[in-house]
Simulated scan of single mutants.
Amino acid sequence: MMIERSGLIVWVNDTKAARNLERFGSLHYISKKMNYAVLYIHASKLDETMRNLQKLPYVKKVERSYRNEIKTEYSSNMPDKTRFYTL
């Protein structure tokens, strides 16, 4: 049974305080250079969690990740052009 998860990009003021985001879900990555964190949560709790994250003093902005909506299955309808570039 797969649990449906959603990703959140949380822009923060302080990366040390971003470690506290683990209590909301699975903290995947914290960027010290760009001051953001990637957080995965249950899809059913998405709206509630986004509202709670916005209330935190060290959070600038919360964005939803659209990674699970991007098509990852590709089809090769185009002809293979590698034979034209051989020596």
Rank of each mutant, 00 (worst) to 15 (best):
K32S: 11
K55T: 09
M50Q: 08
Y74V: 15
N68T: 12
D14F: 08
L53Y: 04
R67L: 14
M50V: 15
K71L: 10
N52H: 10
L21D: 00
K61G: 00
L21K: 01
V38S: 06
E22R: 13
L53M: 06
G7N: 07
R19A: 10
M50S: 00
H42K: 14
Y40Q: 09
E63F: 05
L21F: 04
N13S: 12
K16Y: 13
D80H: 08
I41A: 01
A43T: 13
K61N: 10
G25L: 06
R51G: 04
N77V: 11
I70H: 07
A17K: 14
L8S: 05
R51N: 11
D80C: 11
L21W: 01
M1I: 06
Y29D: 00
H42D: 13
N13A: 09
I3D: 04
E69V: 04
G25R: 05
K16V: 07
S65W: 03
R5D: 01
L56V: 07
R83W: 09
Y74R: 11
A43I: 02
V10G: 02
N77F: 09
Y36E: 03
V12P: 01
K32Q: 11
T86R: 14
T82F: 07
A17T: 06
Y66R: 11
R67G: 06
T15S: 10
K61Y: 08
Y29K: 12
S26N: 14
K33R: 11
N13L: 11
E63P: 04
F84I: 03
I70K: 12
S26W: 05
E22M: 02
T86V: 14
Y85M: 10
L46S: 06
S65V: 05
Y85S: 09
E69W: 05
R19L: 12
S31K: 01
M2W: 01
H28Q: 15
R83Q: 12
P79Y: 05
A43N: 07
I70Y: 09
E48F: 06
R23G: 02
A43H: 04
K60P: 03
N68E: 14
I3C: 03
M34T: 07
D47R: 10
T82W: 05
L46R: 15
T49W: 03
W11I: 04
T82K: 08
Y36N: 01
S76F: 14
I30V: 15
S75F: 12
A43K: 13
S44Y: 08
L27M: 03
A17R: 13
K45Q: 14
E48H: 08
Y85F: 14
N13F: 11
L87V: 13
S76C: 09
